[in-house]
Design a binder for these strands. Sequence first.
DNA 1: TTCGATTTGTTCGTATGTATT
DNA 2: TAATACATACGAACAAATCGA
Lengths: 251, 251
Amino acid sequence: MANTLAAGNLTFNPLYKEVKMRITRSLVAGEWKSGEAIPSESRLAGQFNVSIGTIRKAIDELVAERILLRQQGRGTFVATHTEDRTLFYFFHIVGKDGSRELPMTEMLSFRKVKAGPEHATPLGIARGAKIFNVQNVLKLAGKPVVFDQISVPAALFPDLDEDIFGKRAGTIYGLYQARYGINVIRISERLSAANPPAEAACLLGMRATTPALMIRRVAYTYNDTPVEHRVSWVNTANHEYLSDLWKNEMR
Amino acid sequence: MANTLAAGNLTFNPLYKEVKMRITRSLVAGEWKSGEAIPSESRLAGQFNVSIGTIRKAIDELVAERILLRQQGRGTFVATHTEDRTLFYFFHIVGKDGSRELPMTEMLSFRKVKAGPEHATPLGIARGAKIFNVQNVLKLAGKPVVFDQISVPAALFPDLDEDIFGKRAGTIYGLYQARYGINVIRISERLSAANPPAEAACLLGMRATTPALMIRRVAYTYNDTPVEHRVSWVNTANHEYLSDLWKNEMR
DNA sequence: TTCGATTTGTTCGTATGTATT
DNA sequence: TAATACATACGAACAAATCGA
């Protein structure tokens, strides 16, 4: 059974890994759009000619990675970048009292520039390649708390402009996903403490001599492909960064 | 089967959750010590009078939570707090070049004191209860980078003293686990930027006017019971905090 | 070194329960 | 109500890794 597909595959992979890869390929190709249901387990079992248990095991992993979402009685869906999902998995700033709140985003500038090494390296693109550069201020409870500097390769977001970015309906990653078919599935963040640059300090209503949290984020889509680089400055007078792996997994 | 215990339990629990709870109870009770193998799947299936698949599903979740560890052909083991595990899941400070290294710990002080609200609250104990208070400096590549202030309830660590803590063989959580049967399985960290107190600045070889990273950690054992509170100051001149959910899960 | 027992890993199949439409 | 889809549970067979005789 397993050996019937082979197809020039060197390393032996269990069947369910093969199935997982094929499902992932369909996701990358955009065959199943975000928010839509993928074919039912029994249909996939038929298509791939494997048992339903093997399909389940493949989907299990994609669900664990939050790429797919299962709902009993309804189906299996491609995860959407809703505000809830962002708040939970991609936005880590919380009030010192533990309050979680989705920020209001205010765009300050939008530019198309050539990538310097500080952006080209984390994005894995050539120096001098075109990137879009967006500056945002994030407000919590009406007050500015985070200053974001976002960089994305222009090649991945062909027609992006200030209007499209500024007048999007939902979250930023929701825009990437809905308009460009780019699905951010993982982020990596590196944090340090430093004095904020004058511009950031001013925007965040703090003195440039007050310590701020600097976050350098790289967002990845499938196959660990970087798609966004983001440098954030956070005023931690009343907020902090929460790193709480696992909290709300299982139970 | 599931309904025989009930005990005022409204919500229906699937069998495998029941099995998972019973396995967890055995772990809490110390029936199976860390590093040891738990009974084989077929034996557990016999003991609990459920199918082997149900046992597998229960163990699957405990493995995902890194409480158990499976090895084909050998058995299923209670995870041990080795240095590797600490480096990977509980120590998040890395060099700015991405280098990961286990720190050298140097104890500065060890005291038994009454818990103030700042420690009693996160630890979920009464104000005034006895706690041990340990101060450490962590060195990376021979140079001090982190200043740790650790607080643990004395009630949980009966005979702990300076010698036991200072002359332990492995990691701190390894000591908790091996000597007191307390297994740290999850941590929650809240980060902010601030000027370090004079003592910390001095120890870390930085000026008190240089921003430092402050980390407040709570470590939990089974059932979300807090067992340790830790406040750390990090000199982020050459190091940073890495928050990289998922990176090395699956593949 | 080989062999056999043990243990987990993978795959298949079936039946039934529960949630949704 | 009926059909559909995922969730749970059972069982069986074989593969792959480990370990000791």
